[in-house]
Design a protein around this nucleic acid. Structure first.
Length: 425
RNA sequence: GGAGGGUUGGCCGAGCGGUUGAAGGCACCGGUCUUGAAAACCGGCAACGGGGAGACCCGUUCGUGAGUUCGAAUCUCACACCCUCCGCCA
């Protein structure tokens, strides 16, 4: 969430920052809550101080064996008054907190203003889309012809937006995840982690707003547990409620996990194929860094994701999301879009974000030993490196041959046991 | 599922219902000593919120929430989590 100190000190800056992403900050509501809080807090603390002073006297008198009945008489009824004020203050702070926790992050100044994905800015383009001398198929037709992609069986098992992979295609899926993990651990300095695929509501609210996005998640019946929509949920929470040392930073983790999303708001969107599924695998890279290093780390992390696409020979472009397309917690995001010949379009395959202190404040992730004497929130970042399912789609479509077989990218051949081409068994 | 034990500061760990934000240790920071380092010794060192120009002042926090009390880390109840043993099990 936003820094309450900033809201108190420079409300116009917050209002202006949020306005850039199309969010209207309710100044009147905030001011009313704050004014009420101030009055109530001051009164409560005065009463507490009075009670404490009297109690201290009682303690002194009793320990000397003297009579304390006079002081006790003064304190009579004070306890209930204090309790009533404390309860009122707690309730108000709860309201203030709820108000703050649904306010999104403020975009960094260099993020272009815009209303939707139409206003995103292309900042990089790599590779030439291949020219085909035969009619291209999309991954659904390719996969079906190879006997490796089966949506009918998946539907029988679990309904729409699931897939079953077989044979060489299933192996390709596994190979991609292994390849990504190896590159990030061996060459980019990330530590591999394996994590729970369910997290508590508190964890979910640490990375984003559970109140706002509860419907996007699958929840376990009767329990405070949610299936993770990305490894960001468990891994970022490694540092929840912790006080790190400056010398421990940066922390860099890579995690391969399944991701579960209800896709509640995307009825009728990307219904064909495995572009948008309730379950997909992703290799996520994350960093926890010193506040002054996050901008630099964001560029590096995005580069790490781009490296995977380049090693696989997949043409892509890098888009800087405009203010209006930014995720709730993000201050700046680069999306990587891979070229899909079957759609004749660039499609999102990775999203790399810098959350600055937004998530750290929500989950109390701090470090000490910086320039400031006191602990301060760390900065968190993450990105897909990459979405495995969509990478599979990209490899199939970009590597397709006239006979329906698929050429395996050279970087992946060792992970395929030497297989250079996937063909119908 | 059954039976016990536990949860205190960055970490470990003590704590008769009363000047306890909390002994002691570790870690960390500064100093003495030393050619330098280590050791030893001396000193410092919780977080968060509010107020103040500032030195400071006030408040909150001992798993969470209620309760008893003038007063709770300490007593009572509920809940959560962790550990051990038994049962079940990949």
């Amino acid at each position: 969430m936003l820094d309450i100190q900033l809201l108190r000190k420079d409300l116009p800056a917050v209002v202006a920052g949020l306005a850039r992403r199309g969010v209207t900050f309710d100044e009147a509501a905030f001011r009313a809550l704050e004014d009420e809080r101030k009055v109530l807090q001051t009164r409560t603390e005065e009463l507490q101080a009075k009670r404490n002073a009297l109690n201290k006297q009682v303690g002194m008198l009793k320990s000397k064996g003297e009579d304390a009945s006079e002081v006790l008489a003064q304190a009579g009824g004070l306890g209930d008054e204090v309790k009533a004020n404390e309860a009122a203050l707690a309730a108000l702070q709860e309201r203030l907190n709820a108000f703050l926790r649904v306010i999104p992050n403020i975009p960094r100044p260099e993020v272009a203003a815009g209303a939707s994905s139409d206003d995103n800015v292309e900042v990089r383009r790599w590779g030439e889309p291949r020219a085909f001398d035969f009619p291209v198929k999309d991954h659904v037709d390719l996969g079906a012809a190879l006997g490796g992609l089966d949506f009918d069986t998946a539907a029988k098992l679990s309904g729409a937006r699931f897939s079953v992979l077989r044979g060489g295609v299933a192996r390709l899926h596994r190979a991609l995840a292994q390849f990504m993990l190896d590159v990030h651990t061996r060459e980019h300095g990330y530590t591999e982690v394996y994590v729970p695929y369910m997290v508590t509501g508190e964890c979910a609210d640490g990375v984003s707003s559970l109140a706002k996005f509860r419907d996007d998640l699958f929840k376990l019946e009767g329990r405070d547990l949610y299936l993770i929509p990305t490894a960001e949920y468990p891994v970022t929470n490694f540092v929840r409620d912790t006080l790190l040392e400056a010398k421990d930073l940066p922390l860099k983790f890579v995690c391969h996990s399944p991701c579960f999303r209800s896709e509640a708001g995307s009825y009728g969107k990307d219904t064909r194929g495995m572009i948008r599924q309730h379950q997909f695998d992703k290799v996520e890279i994350l960093q926890v860094v010193h506040p002054e290093k996050s901008a630099e780390a964001h560029e590096a992390l995005t580069g790490h994701a781009q490296a995977i696409l380049e090693r696989l020979g997949l043409p892509y472009r890098t888009m800087m999301l405009c203010t209006g397309d930014l995720g709730f917690s993000s201050a700046k995001t680069y999306d990587l879009e891979v070229w899909l010949p079957g759609q004749q379009a660039y499609r999102e395959i990775s999203s790399c974000s810098n959350f600055e202190a937004f998530q750290a404040r929500r989950m109390q992730a701090r470090f000490k030993g910086g320039d400031k004497g006191r602990p301060e929130p760390v900065h968190t970042l993450n990105g897909s490196g990459l979405a495995v399912g969509r990478t599979l789609v990209a490899v199939l479509e970009n590597g397709q041959q006239a006979d329906g077989s698929v050429t395996v990218p050279p970087a992946l051949v060792p992970y395929m046991g030497g297989v250079e081409r996937i063909a119908r068994a």
